[in-house]
Nucleic acid binder design. Sequence first.
DNA 1: AGAGGTTGGTTGAATAATCAACGAGTATCA
DNA 2: TGATACTCGTTGATTATTCAACCAACCTCT
Lengths: 169, 169
Amino acid sequence: MRYYADVTMTTRWLTEEEQRTWRLFLQACQSVFAATDAQLARDSGLPHGYYEILVHLSEAPNRALRMTQLARASTYSKSRLSHAVARLEERSWVQRRDCETDRRGQIAQLTDEGFAALAAAAPGHVDQVRRSLMDVLTPDQVEQLGEISAAIIAAAACPAEECHEADNF
Amino acid sequence: MRYYADVTMTTRWLTEEEQRTWRLFLQACQSVFAATDAQLARDSGLPHGYYEILVHLSEAPNRALRMTQLARASTYSKSRLSHAVARLEERSWVQRRDCETDRRGQIAQLTDEGFAALAAAAPGHVDQVRRSLMDVLTPDQVEQLGEISAAIIAAAACPAEECHEADNF
DNA sequence: AGAGGTTGGTTGAATAATCAACGAGTATCA
DNA sequence: TGATACTCGTTGATTATTCAACCAACCTCT
């Protein structure tokens, strides 16, 4: 039997090569993310994607972003972001402010404390990214990976598919 | 300010190129997994990694595996797998049996019903993998991605790092 | 002005993942 | 035999994520 059970006959199955690649890709991603998540959790008590949120805020003008923009930047759903920011607010790493020009709006603002936490977490994180990814690949491969990633993102961005999943985006 | 806040001076920061690649990689992974997860959830009500568990069981001799082996194959922690199998058991897709040779052991066995569910889910899933990944890349890129993934996995497997995270592995 | 629709964001319940602790079985070695 | 240590797998509490429902503010068009 093949990797994927065959039922309809009309499906275009994956070739051996594609199958192999898909599995390797899955495993590689898991290994990279497991390592970086573990490192962040260990060294900064930062749960998974929260670091990304802080990074995006730290780069925004004034270290502040509207919730929706922040969600888009972090590829978080609005709901997920709302919960996440609530936790970050409990730790005083982020503060919510009302938006002046749109009274529905909320602005997430990175606090000094939050910035300090991020600054403390960054070196270890970068180090882990090196160990898990960059130092493991040749410069050519890094370039290839960039191009491959860009192609994937581009394909996902448009393709007349349902981009309108209820809450997300 | 750079992407990652600079505090220690001793850190080897990412180059522009590496930074760009890292972010693209993150986003590409999110986009692929978001798409495949959404597809599986929509078409089969299968939460995230559960499909993988069923796949691994379906390929095992006798469609059965010891919990620990299954955990390793799916890169699940023992705890996570235990919970997951409990849910799959509620849906009668998997059954637990005692191991004859080791009385501590449990064997997860894919039921016919579970196999049918997997067979029903597979075509849509494969299709999504094509749309999100394979059809988006050139054959060369598919090959490159395979090699890159293999390098990442190999590096994570050995490197004298702490492979002994409490519960995992 | 106001009806209808859209967007921004939150909430709470349900589900999933992580973490720490545990009991039962096995292995090793005295 | 028994002491010690380790492996197998589960459990319950905590935390994170998803999902559906919702309110309030804005936008458009008449």
